[in-house]
Design a protein around this nucleic acid. Structure first.
Lengths: 191, 191, 191, 191
DNA sequence: TCCTAAGCGAGACGGTACGTCTTGTCTTCCA
DNA sequence: TGGAAGACAAGACGTACCGTCTCGCTTAGGA
């Protein structure tokens, strides 16, 4: 039945997300997962071909939730006028801090890290395309978008690994300022 | 016999660096490594406790070489006057492109990725500290340094994964411009 | 209701008897049987607890048919005056050659083999008891009966495995002669 | 090392021969065997591909020992003058009664049963060939040999299953008498 | 004629064994 | 003494069956 299947998959997903916070992903066994989910090991294979597949499936929901929240804000106004979208991202990360600490932090998962950066870069690209009708960027916009994505990723992980010493709003503001204005008010701009 | 030992370790290291370009790190076995190095499997354990250990040992040389090249340039003059250090980094990456593609790219190794970002952030911190005697940064310098590191990392991987469509020098220039001036010539700077 | 049930059981039985000629009994799965019978696997368990049980059920009919044919002949006259019963046995075996080749031959089923020998021994015992009112046997009649049964079994399997090079009647005659007179015309009998 | 390997194989063989007396062969697992032998399950597969293979290997020794004892006696004099060979067989069976009870008895192993009968038939064939220079057999000698083999097999199992109520010597005598003279002193021979 | 219990299909699941693959340890022997 | 060779324990892997269960559909037989 569909209900049973959905239940089983959710149990598996939750078990994995729990375990991922306890030990390194590579050394989580299928047995570990099914033990935690109170299911038989063979049952796992009725639903997923590998724990990677299960992880991907389980992460979808997190990302989907986030994307839905942000989408309306994205194209509304140029990023340099409002860091609202960034604020939501930092808030979302804070909400699932333990999980992201594992996925992105020291010994994080390369696959997830790059997936996240790609994701952000795509959004930035849209933002930049929308906002840059007249203004000249400092580099081809793909590269600029990538720059923003790398920055955001690095600040998120820094923030997570340092026990989130600022509010999501503050982080969003700093991120935006750094990306829009550059690291420093340059000597040229200072005059 | 010191000579034999060093020889054995180098054989192991080279074998691993070769293999890492052929298949995903996690599914390289000790047997694979020793087969490639024409050594007995048991011999591996006389020298290393895990393939991670061997990898770390083998990567040292790459990083060390790079660090030595850059160090003198780092503190010489503020980054915004010369992207020389960045240029060297991009050239180094180009030289070992296949390797970094594996270590940092899609399905890269989380450990290495974060290690690299940390590394860059430390350097940026030094650069910023040296250059910012009078100038006000847009954010606490740890954060600014982290921002630069994330950006550099993201641009390196973008460049690698897109078959290096610009010269190292061009990449360095763009990176510097984006970091120093921000993504766009800001409205403020436009006037 | 009953008609459907009987139909289902017959389908299962036929499927098994077919399969038993295609692969070794132990490696026939319940799934194999129900696939062949165009039934659901769970349905098997509504009728039988194991494939052994199904086999036993299915074999009954074969044995029953045989026993009915033979019974009247058995006690009529001493075996050494007529090998009629043996003839019927060989004919029956010939009729179901493929099946018995599997059940009794190389890699046959120990259970069936011994069941068959026991069966024959029981009949021989009755025959001998009836015929030996005055004549002295060469050994206790249980043993003599067992001897006859072993011989008949061995000759049946030899005959089957060698593509039945004699007619059932010839086999029956030889069997009877060997059992009654012994392997050779003994020196004593030669005189 | 060779010594270790031989030791391991013997451990496995003994474990299996023990287990075979405790439960049906088919439901002995590899784990059962290696548990009993105090070895790791994987080790089993370094030496044998299946428990059947192990059993065959383990049984060799029994048969070999027996064959060596009998061979010199076999061709010495015609069977009808001395049941010495048969006596040795029954003694051998008695010595390993528990084992043969399992291998040959009710729920015995078809493979072993037929192997044993074939084995005996081959010997009988040699005996008959040697002894029958002048005397006329009651049937083609392959068939006569098969008859003897079936008889011997049936008597061995009868004897085993009935707690060996006669001495090996007595059994050998009866077997010989039944095979040589036939079940009864026939009416014809009686005159 | 309806309706209702049985037969059955479909398939999820717990459970057990399979045969394979790595890992790490050990022992023996050679250069 | 460093390394080759290889046996072994340990334990996860993915697969294959088993037996049980629940859920619907259908279909025949008694009301």
């Amino acid at each position: 039945m569909d209900r049973r299947v959905r239940r089983t998959r959710k149990l598996l997903g939750n078990a994995l997300l729990e375990l991922v916070q306890e030990k390194k992903f590579e050394q989580i066994t299928i047995q570990d997962i099914t033990d935690r989910a109170d299911l038989n090991r063979a049952t796992f294979y009725l639903h997923y071909g590998s724990k990677e597949e299960l992880l991907a499936d389980s992460l979808e929901s997190y990302f989907d939730a986030l994307v839905e929240q942000i989408t309306p804000l994205t194209l509304e106004k140029p990023i340099w006028e409002s860091p609202a979208a960034e604020g939501i991202v930092f808030a979302h990360v804070a909400e699932h801090a333990e999980l992201y600490r594992v996925l992105l932090g020291k010994n994080g998962m390369g696959y997830v890290i790059n997936r996240v950066i790609d994701y952000i870069a795509e959004f930035s690209l849209l933002q930049l395309k929308a906002g840059l009708n007249s203004i000249e960027p400092q580099a081809p916009i793909e590269i600029a978008a990538r720059h923003v994505a790398g920055s955001l990723y690095a600040l998120i992980t820094w923030w997570l690994m340092n026990d989130m010493p600022y509010t999501p709003h503050e982080m969003a503001e700093m991120t935006t300022r750094l990306c829009v204005n550059g690291t420093v008010s340059t000597p040229a701009a200072q005059e």
